[in-house]
Simulated scan of single mutants.
Amino acid sequence: MMKEAKNIPLSKYQHLFFDLDHTLWDFETNAKNTLSDLYQKNDLFTRGIKDFDAFFARYSFHNERLWDRYTKGFIKQEELRWKRLWLSMLDFKIADEPLAKSLSVEFLELLPQKTTLFPYTIEILDYLLNKGYRMHLITNGFDAVQHSKIQNSKIHHYFEEVITSERSNSLKPNKEIFEFALQLTKAEKEHSIMIGDNLDADIQGAINAGLETVFVNHINATPHIQPTYIVHHLKELEEIF
């Protein structure tokens, strides 16, 4: 049974480990805006992609599927980067591997410049910082890309450590990335909690590492894993912390 926030003493948690994409940084909005820019710049309409929204829907489908394969160790980083665009174009009968790889490079250059955060992100980070919590990021995203995102979004100063898959040589949901984070920050499990949107990577991964969890359920999904807490809006974190 999920614990009631009011029963938790204020001093229980000291280290808050956040996920970045889909939790604080609005990946879907930023990715859609980035892909729209590339769609226009590369004149993909005349290449046969007549409906941008349909193209983005296919990108989202392939991106989610490939990220799942990447986190499970079935594919490498480079394959994920370009195949999500290549497969999206194939759905429109465009078999142009060089274009897919070129778009992949442009996409990763432009994406971190986008700065849309979920509502109340700055406010909740200010709130938590002012209450004395020590905050860190644990992300499967690419090292340079993730650092650019938080710098451009002006939230870098809230986090003491940014633990990426590259830095830790592991990926969520593997418990090693969480153990690396705990060791790096000198945090104790009983005083730490993971906050993220992905039930398998963030929540189950943290549970496997012995951490309590907050599932940030922006999309009102039906949980198939039981977190310690569930919130549907970042402001609700105030009820826990």
Rank of each mutant, 00 (worst) to 15 (best):
H232Y: 15
A31F: 00
E239S: 15
S153Y: 06
S165W: 07
N7V: 08
H224L: 03
G132I: 02
G48Q: 09
V216A: 08
S170Y: 10
M194W: 13
Y70P: 06
S102K: 15
I195C: 12
G210R: 03
A201M: 07
K12R: 15
H147L: 08
V216C: 09
L38V: 03
Q183G: 14
R134Y: 11
I225W: 13
Y39P: 01
R81L: 13
E106H: 12
H147Q: 09
I150M: 10
H232F: 12
E212D: 15
S192K: 06
N42V: 01
L117A: 08
N130L: 14
I193E: 04
V216F: 01
E78G: 10
W67F: 13
N220S: 14
H156P: 01
G210N: 10
D197A: 14
S88D: 01
I240H: 04
M2Y: 03
I240V: 10
Y120S: 04
P223D: 09
R65Y: 07
I193K: 05
I193Y: 05
L66F: 13
A221R: 14
A201Y: 06
F92R: 02
Y59I: 01
Q151R: 15
F45C: 04
F17N: 07
T164L: 11
E123A: 14
V231T: 14
M194E: 09
V105C: 07
T228F: 06
L117K: 10
K12W: 01
K101H: 00
L199S: 03
F215Q: 04
T121P: 05
S148M: 10
Y229K: 11
F180A: 12
T213D: 09
K149C: 01
Y133F: 15
W67A: 09
H22V: 01
R134S: 11
K32P: 05
E64K: 04
R58L: 00
K76A: 09
W82T: 00
F215S: 02
T116W: 06
